[in-house]
Amino acid sequence: MFLARIGGTVVAAVKHPTLDGCRFLIAQRLEADGSAALEPIVVVDWLGAGSGATVLVSTDGDIARNRLGNTTPARMVVVGIVDQVQTRLSARQR
């Protein structure tokens, strides 16, 4: 799983039948220091992540298969919308 920032949406009429009605978002994978990846990815989202949101993406295909059927090519799915990322070291770790 990794963190990614949503950059926009994709509209596609011609797609694999199991992807009908799915919401496709453009996302960029985030590094620990917050910098974004060069190449965008397209994730399937049913949690309603908005543009600019930071989300947690999983590449495990099972959740997509359970929801969209055994023949779905979907793989990267938004499994959660990030509320807060804790990066400050606590006093003890510093």
Binding site: T9, V10, V11, K15, H16, L19, A64, P73, R75
Partner: peptide, 26 residues
């Protein structure tokens, strides 16, 4: 997952076109 569309037969596929992009809104 690229071989899922051919389920249940096993195929040596690791890249599969899932959709054709009509428009992208960034």
């Amino acid at each position: 997952e690229a071989a899922n569309p051919f389920w249940p037969n096993a195929v040596p596929v690791d890249a599969y076109c899932s959709l054709i992009v009509d428009s992208i809104n960034i």
